[in-house]
């Protein structure tokens, strides 16, 4: 019991120290990335100025997957090692991942309007991200539906892992489906021929997004640990009151 409690305590101390530098680094990188994205990079010969949307769209897509992976790894931690920090990490990652998936979807469709002439195309990539977003919604809904945090964590862990098995299948099947219906995607981003002047802002922004996401995740975990402490203390107090009343 003591070791179980000691770990979150250690985590609280370390994460408290790491949070401020992480946030500061993310802010600096954002400033640099925005400068590169708007002032120091040319317009694409094919996409024109709209290529600048890619500097947030691609990192958001990366974070959408990154946070799902965090959830999947934490889910293993919950089910296999029954580590309380894993529960907390799962819980904190879900809303952040969902938010970035939404950003990816909306920026993608804002890019699509000038490029494709319509806000939404059932393109393989967009469609897979939409399914990923639906899966995030399911995870969030399940968190809400179960009251007890331990049971909720185990239930969500199962769902996350089943979803993780499903994601590559969805990706493959959607690609199969889209070549069936409309031929290959109109445009490939991130191909090997990308110009370094565009790669630089993309990488800086991706790093900035990652640090920002990590800081948010750590902060969320800290809050979650506090929430659990509040919950157990409240329960303890209710018990004491009940005993006093009896």
């Amino acid at each position: 019991m003591l070791t179980r409690l000691a770990n979150p305590g250690f985590f609280m101390r370390v994460s408290g120290l790491a949070l401020a530098p992480l946030a500061a680094a993310a802010a600096l990188l954002f400033a640099l990335g925005l400068y590169l994205a708007f002032f120091a990079s040319p317009a694409d010969y094919q996409q024109g100025e709209t290529v600048r949307i890619m500097y947030i769209h691609v990192p958001a897509a990366w974070l959408a997957l990154f946070f799902y992976s965090i959830m999947a790894v934490s889910a293993l931690g919950t089910l296999v090692w029954r580590h309380p920090l894993a529960d907390v990490s799962q819980r904190a990652a879900a809303p952040i991942g969902a938010a970035f998936t939404l950003v990816c979807l909306v920026t993608g469709s804002l890019w699509g309007k000038p490029m494709w002439g319509t806000y939404w195309v059932w393109d393989a990539r967009l469609t897979s991200v939409l399914v990923l977003f639906l899966m995030y919604c399911g995870v969030l809904a399940l968190w809400r539906a179960v009251d007890d945090p331990g049971r909720a964590a185990r239930a969500v862990a199962v769902l996350t892992l089943v979803g993780a098995v499903n994601i590559p299948i969805v990706k493959y099947s959607v690609e199969w489906w889209s070549t069936l219906h409309q031929g290959p995607s109109v445009f490939r981003m991130g191909g090997p021929t990308i110009d370094p002047s565009m790669l630089r802002p993309l990488l800086v922004m991706a790093l900035a997004f990652t640090l920002f996401g990590t800081a948010l995740h750590l902060a969320g975990m800290r809050t979650e640990i506090l929430r659990r402490r509040v919950r157990s203390l409240t329960l303890l107090q209710a018990e004491r009151l009940e005993r006093a009343a009896a």
């Binding site: 317009a43 100025e49 949307i53 939404l102 920026t107 890019w111």
Partner: peptide
Amino acid sequence: METGRHAVFIWSAYGLTCLVAFGL
């Protein structure tokens, strides 16, 4: 900074991302 005729889309994409980040 000439974002050209697609300025609306670029700015709304960045604006929305800022909003979501701020919200988080």
